[in-house]
Design a protein around this nucleic acid. Structure first.
Length: 242
DNA sequence: CCCTAGATGCAT
DNA sequence: TGCATCTAGGGG
């Protein structure tokens, strides 16, 4: 079994490796946000890695960075440890931790987590944005809900520094990493990502196996096509690494 | 330009 | 399944 690992403040060096390498180290991490004096702590339970051209050993067709630098995704090219906050479907603000060296695009999407402090504030933020809260495990279950719960929004908080904790847009964010890799990390295809390369080439979703706050798997366009050609997958899980 | 599709969530 | 509603790419 896994003993409780400790936590320590993240450094830029911790996040200067490729997103795929950084992703598992972010499971169990804490993202602490303070907005209008209200503090919320998120324990990260599910992530996805996204590379840019030139990062890692192959191009990533699912990444916002795949077509090069734009106004929207510029934060992905910046220093590691900042947060890339983007608008999804014109509605949801989703949060990535920028990874890899400055000048090379990359990030790890925080897909789900457990609110371990500030559940009242997180609940209110979600309700204010038109969400519904049925159970506390659902507060940050899914990237859109997670963004609402921690209070980070596009565009005002895009690029906020989670290493120094420098305020941006009225918010402060800090990232704490586990001192050891958490046990029971499951891997599988990313959710909702279309792409000609399909599922099997990019099992870049990672989560803490069995954790109730992990978001439900949903077939993406590319994932469905790939699955039809290969073995059936119901849960999206490829493997559990201990 | 206009159309489509998207790293989503929610009601129907 | 459709909608909310913003960004970006691809095709006229």
């Amino acid at each position: 079994m896994s003993g409780d690992t400790g936590l320590r403040p993240a450094t830029r060096a911790d996040l200067s490796a490729t997103p795929l390498e950084c992703a598992p180290t972010l499971l169990g991490a804490h993202l602490v946000t303070t907005i209008d004096g209200e503090r919320t702590t998120l324990r990260v339970t599910e992530v996805e890695a996204y590379h840019g051209r030139g990062t890692g050993d192959r191009p990533d067709p699912g990444s916002h960075a795949r077509m090069g630098k734009t106004n929207r995704n510029a934060t992905m090219w910046g220093e590691p440890g900042h947060l890339y906050v983007y608008l999804s479907h014109g509605i949801h603000s989703c949060v990535n931790v920028v990874c890899g060296p400055e000048g090379l695009a990359g990030g790890v999407l925080l897909r789900a987590g457990e609110i371990v402090e500030g559940a009242d504030a997180a609940t209110r933020r979600r309700l204010e944005r038109g969400g519904v809260v049925r159970a506390s495990v659902d507060l940050a279950r899914g990237p859109g809900r997670l963004g609402d719960a921690v209070g980070l929004r596009h565009p005002q908080h895009d690029g906020i520094d989670a290493i120094t904790g420098e305020p941006r847009g009225g918010a402060v964010a800090r990232l704490l990493l586990p001192t050891a890799l958490v046990a029971g990390i499951a891997t599988g295809p990313r959710v909702g990502v279309a792409g000609v390369a399909g599922t099997d080439a990019f099992p870049w979703r990672m989560w803490i196996a069995g954790d109730p706050t992990v978001s439900p798997f949903r077939w993406g366009r590319g994932a469905r096509e790939a699955a039809q050609a290969g073995p059936a997958r119901r849960t999206g899980a490829d493997a559990v690494l201990d």
